[in-house]
Simulated scan of single mutants.
Amino acid sequence: MTMLQLENMDCGYGAFHAVHDLSLTIEQGEIFALLGPNGAGKSSTIMSIAGHVQLMSGAIRFDGTDISSLSARERVRLGIAVAPEGRRLFPDLTIEENLTVGGYSLSREREAVNREIVFTLFPRLTERLKQPASTLSGGEQQMLAMGRAMMAEPRLLMIDEVSLGLMPKMVDVCYHAINHLKSQGVTILLVEQNTKRALEVADHVCVLESGQSVWQGTAAEAQNAPDLIEAFLGMAKEAS
């Protein structure tokens, strides 16, 4: 069953088009990876779906309904949440308070249930519950960013640059959580420059370059296309 469709989407900032004529389909319960170098339009795509970047043309459909004109808050209520690039936590708020912000649209009872789900996936957060977010390590901040998004009970969870700047052990923890969420029926839209890790978990892939889709297919097809992987890695190396 189709959950999300982008139809000839253009989005950007003011007069600047960051993404051009992008069409893709994401099925319910799958992990869909957006790959590409810095500046390819991956984050702009995710933030446009979330309602934070201007949609210039085209349509965004969620469960078959055009949500292009809905506010970011209304999209959260439909079940769309994002863990953004750079985490964007509230640095002076504690872990507990950041999680509370993530569950603002829910009842106290649902908030408490979701908090326990977050703590089960990320037990380290329980050890630092009263610490300000600014005092956490990069890995702990990434856990908190994902946990805050999970507090909204998303049906579609978008995670931007999961492994960026993290130690391998912390990357493993985050990907374990992603696999667990998929097993629970959550659809994941994943932005990642770690091609190998993304292809290990993804069902489908879209490669962006200069704001345009240059390849789409299954993760298995991507893994069996050395020319594609070599081209992507070359782009990523040049952009770093």
Rank of each mutant, 00 (worst) to 15 (best):
S44R: 07
G102V: 03
V113S: 13
G29N: 01
I95Q: 00
G58H: 00
E230C: 12
T2L: 14
A198R: 07
L190A: 11
I49V: 15
I159E: 06
A83K: 02
D63K: 03
L24T: 06
E161K: 15
M9K: 03
S240E: 06
F119V: 15
R88L: 11
T120S: 15
N38T: 10
A231L: 14
L93W: 02
R75F: 04
V19T: 06
P84R: 04
K237Y: 09
M9N: 07
R77H: 08
E85N: 11
M150P: 11
P132N: 06
R108A: 15
L208C: 04
G147A: 09
M1R: 12
S210G: 01
R88E: 14
Y104V: 05
A15R: 14
A40D: 04
F122Y: 14
R61Y: 09
V201I: 15
M143E: 10
R75Y: 08
V207E: 10
A239L: 07
Q28N: 05
K182C: 08
L89C: 10
E209M: 08
D160A: 03
L144R: 12
Q142C: 04
G138R: 01
G217V: 11
T126I: 15
N8G: 09
L233P: 05
F119Y: 15
Q131K: 12
T187N: 07
K130E: 00
T45Q: 05
L34P: 01
L189V: 11
I95V: 15
Q216R: 06
D227K: 02
D203E: 14
I46F: 10
L190H: 10
S213T: 14
E221D: 09
L93A: 13
E97R: 06
V186Y: 09
M3G: 01
T94G: 07
E27C: 02
L55Q: 05
I159Q: 03
S107R: 08
T65A: 15
S210C: 00
A15Q: 15
R108K: 15
F16C: 10
L190C: 01
V101F: 13
A231E: 05
K169F: 12
C11M: 07
E238P: 04
V162S: 03
N224P: 04
R155F: 06
A33Q: 12
N179G: 11
S43P: 13
F16A: 14
E140K: 06
I67G: 14
T65N: 12
D92A: 13
A18T: 01
L181E: 03
G147E: 04
Q141T: 01
F122C: 02
G211I: 01
T195E: 10
G165I: 05
S134Q: 12
D203C: 10
A81W: 00
I49C: 00
